[in-house]
């Protein structure tokens, strides 16, 4: 069944969208990752304009992260103070990102920047995950111990220290502020929540306890993606609510199965598979940039003056 997407201005098969939503939901449920860094490239590969893919994905992540935050909140796994500081940074970062996005769009360079960002980040995450799972599989699980959270001592020299009771930390507020800011930029430009960057940074740079990391990052992502949704709606009119809701319905179903399957299967093997998938997508993105295009010319609507 074909459905016409009012903002993307294209007709796509409803079941393909639902299927894509559930596959990404399944993967995110299974691995506990956000779906943005998988979904945005999928949408772009489908032919959805990159700007619409980014704005719409931000909108979808609002829903996914609220569901996540509520689950973690019930278990008391959200450091609201830390999250709040990160939100402040995130709002500023996403505002800068949205402004950059519009400038780049007027210059005709936004597709390039989105693609390059995905190649870099997907490549990086994929390689790290593959390395991690290969290490564990090779050491046959037993000897594999997560390295203890490294303490960056220069970090403790920074001013504006704040006490974060939930995380048991007394650190400079500039750190979560800066991290939130960076992720805000990524959210605006790539349509991702940025958990893949935030979570390791919170563990290794801030030294937060792992139990509160996911809930707190989701808390920040919720506010930042909501801000990105509004900013993209105002600046670019590229948020397709219909597309977001369809993807979301798929994702909700997929995530349920994903969580169930993820609980049963051997994590490190699966992580390796996800790593290969992520690397495959990075390669596909890179190919689009490197291969000689069929047509040297592209046509787009005139944006701005």
């Amino acid at each position: 069944m074909q459905i016409y997407l009012p903002i993307a201005e294209m007709s796509v098969n409803l079941f393909i969208l639902l299927g894509m939503g559930s596959v990404v939901g399944f993967l995110s449920g299974m691995f506990g990752v956000g779906g943005g860094f998988l979904m945005t490239p999928f949408l772009i590969f489908m032919g959805v304009p990159a700007a619409v893919a980014v704005g719409t994905e931000a909108n979808q992540i609002v829903a996914a992260s609220l569901a996540g935050v509520m689950a973690h909140w019930r278990r008391g796994n959200v450091d609201f103070k830390m999250g709040g500081v990160m939100v402040v940074g995130g709002l500023a970062g996403s505002a800068l990102g949205a402004w950059l996005f519009r400038e780049l769009r007027e210059q005709g360079q936004i597709d390039l920047v989105i693609s390059v960002s995905f190649v870099v980040f997907l490549g990086l995450i994929g390689s790290l995950m593959l390395w991690e799972s290969a290490r564990v599989v090779l050491l046959s699980g037993s000897a594999a111990k997560r390295r203890k959270a490294r303490r960056h001592y220069w970090v403790h020299g920074l001013p504006f220290k704040m006490r974060f009771h939930k995380s048991g930390l007394y650190i400079s507020s500039l750190l979560p502020l800066g991290m939130g800011f960076l992720v805000g930029i990524l959210a605006s430009i790539m349509g991702v929540g940025g958990g893949f960057f935030l979570i390791p940074a919170m563990i290794y740079v801030l030294g937060m306890p792992t139990s509160v990391v996911v809930g707190t990052s989701l808390f920040q992502i919720l506010f930042v993606t909501a801000n990105v949704t509004v900013l993209h709606s105002v600046n670019n009119q590229t948020v397709d609510v219909l597309l977001a809701l369809i993807l979301l319905s798929g994702a909700v179903i997929g995530a349920r199965f994903g969580t169930a399957v993820g609980a049963k299967l051997k994590g490190e093997h699966l992580r390796g598979l996800l790593a290969l998938l992520v690397l495959g997508m990075a390669a596909r993105m890179a190919a689009r940039l490197l291969m000689t295009p069929q047509d040297m010319f592209t046509v787009s609507p005139l944006v701005g003056g």
Binding site: L66, A67, M70, A71, V230, Q237, A244
Partner: peptide, 27 residues
């Protein structure tokens, strides 16, 4: 989306929040 972009943005967020809350209840 084109006539009231700001209101549209807020509505999009609101819809997402409702959807997220609903799915959380289902879970």
């Amino acid at each position: 989306a084109h006539d009231q972009p700001a209101a549209y943005g807020f509505l999009a967020v609101l819809l997402a929040l409702i959807a997220g809350w609903a799915s959380s209840m289902v879970y």
